[in-house]
Simulated scan of single mutants.
Amino acid sequence: MRLLTLSEYCLLIFFTGVYLAVTGFTAKDIGLYIGIAFIYTFSHIFAKRFWQKRGKEQKQIHLFFSVLAIIGSVFVTVLFIAIAASFSM
């Protein structure tokens, strides 16, 4: 997997989780689709610019590290949502 794709996936997982938590997990229909489309667009643009500046846009990552990064992204997202929920009570 390319580093660019992996970072896009991780950013998409995190910010989609935050978006759904902020909307109270009630986002439906067109609002959900538009929100996820914006999140994907911004994460793609950010990741592409970030890795182009460093010259690592085409770097390949091993499958094991890709899986670890995605699992870590899910863990950080759930941790962020749990911490935010504990402060809102």
Rank of each mutant, 00 (worst) to 15 (best):
8 E>L: 10
8 E>Y: 08
9 Y>N: 11
9 Y>P: 06
9 Y>D: 14
10 C>I: 05
10 C>Q: 05
10 C>G: 09
12 L>Y: 10
13 I>H: 01
14 F>N: 02
15 F>G: 05
16 T>Q: 03
19 Y>A: 10
19 Y>K: 03
19 Y>R: 01
21 A>L: 03
21 A>M: 05
23 T>M: 08
23 T>G: 15
24 G>Y: 04
24 G>N: 01
24 G>T: 06
25 F>T: 02
26 T>E: 14
26 T>G: 10
26 T>F: 10
26 T>Y: 09
27 A>N: 01
28 K>I: 01
28 K>Y: 07
29 D>H: 08
29 D>W: 06
29 D>S: 15
30 I>K: 12
30 I>R: 10
31 G>N: 09
31 G>D: 13
31 G>I: 00
32 L>D: 02
32 L>T: 03
32 L>S: 01
32 L>P: 01
33 Y>G: 14
35 G>C: 01
36 I>F: 09
37 A>E: 06
37 A>D: 02
38 F>L: 15
38 F>P: 02
39 I>D: 04
40 Y>W: 12
40 Y>P: 08
40 Y>L: 13
40 Y>D: 10
41 T>L: 15
41 T>S: 15
41 T>M: 13
42 F>P: 08
42 F>M: 13
43 S>N: 14
45 I>D: 00
45 I>F: 00
45 I>M: 03
46 F>Q: 07
46 F>R: 06
46 F>G: 02
47 A>W: 04
47 A>S: 15
47 A>T: 14
48 K>L: 09
49 R>N: 11
50 F>L: 10
50 F>E: 04
50 F>K: 03
50 F>M: 09
51 W>V: 07
53 K>N: 15
53 K>S: 12
53 K>R: 11
